[in-house]
Simulated scan of single mutants.
Amino acid sequence: MIPHYKNVHNRFKINGFHFDKEALFQLAYTSIKEGKEHEKDLGVFLLDWLDDKEIITVTTSGTTGVPKRIAIKKQAMVHSAIATGNFFNLHPQDKALLCLPPRYIAGKMMIVRAMIIGLELDIIEPTSHLDSLFAHQTYDFGAIVPLQAENSLEKLNQFKKIIIGGAKVSDDLASKLKEVNSEIYETYGMTETITHIAAKKIGEEYFNILEHVSISNDDRNCLVIEAPSISDEKVITNDIVAILNEKQFKWLGRYDNVINSGGIKLFPEQIETKLASRISNRFFITGFPDAVLGTKVVLVIEGESKEIDLEIFNSLEKFEKPKEVVFVSEFVETDTKKINRNKTLEKIKVV
């Protein structure tokens, strides 16, 4: 029997202390009144979760467009939490870490998983690294973003299982993660699907979907997700995928980022993956108008302008090689610290 969203598991802990509903109210008020920013966000979420409404309003990250507010059923969040627990074999009293902002869906869902499954959740301030973890601390489960993984490789052995989401894991990072003695998964999902609906072990090619999820392609070859326990409507994405079977798919790139250069369709994300180990600064691939090709491939790098060694492009196919390199002193970011490509391009008056 699936737990109701009003239930709080009797094994649930935060930072070592048991909390029932009444105690959670007190924690929420104290966090809002006296806490740091992430603690205030925790308190706001707890009050939203514990009120009499059946829905909760969340904000999308704004990675691919303007951030928007959407309403999600609390019971759907419970279904998502159970699906994650089943996929990763989580049990009551397993220790988990929240190091993501409770303001956004990934952080909220770690809290919901803990309340519903009965996890013992430790909460630390969300930063770009995990330096605040002591060497003796170990966890059964944690959720991080690629930047945290990159900056905290030596800490990841303290987790039995880790999920990484929010941005694609580059080939360079994936090769480093393979040396970590933990089960590490890259996830696929978005706010509209209440975080991930699929995951794959680092180094694997295909994502495996969670329970009660069905997938298909639309006429653009973009992923269409049906998950009745999570969303009443189909979720039509802008992610171009290759579907292997009813349970597995390979992510190719964003439909809205595809570059048609001289009649050849190129996926910026795939080019970026090839370049990730060769460029130390943040960067991305985009397309600029071109009189001959229609659209030419352009490399946009964060930082001061300097000479580029063309050997960094040796791993690219002929049509993938950038025809121009543009430097931007500072990229525009979303609230969740991802690169906002459109806003960054506006700075150089291209879009």
Rank of each mutant, 00 (worst) to 15 (best):
L153A: 05
K168F: 04
L119E: 04
Q148R: 06
D122E: 13
Q148N: 08
E150I: 14
T191I: 01
T138L: 11
P101V: 00
M115H: 03
K95H: 12
G165M: 05
D94A: 00
I123L: 15
L100S: 08
I117G: 12
E179C: 06
V180G: 08
T138Y: 07
K176F: 07
K95E: 09
F159K: 10
H129M: 02
T187M: 02
L177I: 01
K160R: 12
I111Q: 06
A135E: 14
K108V: 12
T138E: 15
K155D: 05
S175R: 13
G107A: 06
L153V: 13
F134G: 08
F141L: 10
N89A: 02
P146I: 11
Q93V: 05
L90Q: 07
H136A: 12
N86F: 04
I117V: 13
N157S: 14
I105V: 10
I184D: 08
F88K: 08
E154N: 11
I105A: 00
E183W: 01
E183T: 11
I144H: 08
F88L: 15
L147H: 01
D94V: 09
T127F: 08
I123G: 06
I163T: 15
G166W: 07
S128C: 06
A149K: 12
I163K: 13
S128E: 15
A106V: 03
N86T: 13
G118T: 05
F88P: 10
E192G: 03
E183L: 15
A96R: 01
S132K: 15
Y139W: 13
Y185W: 13
E150F: 09
Q137V: 01
G85W: 05
P92T: 09
Q93G: 00
F87T: 04
L153F: 03
K178D: 04
G118A: 04
N181V: 07
D131V: 10
C99S: 13
A135T: 09
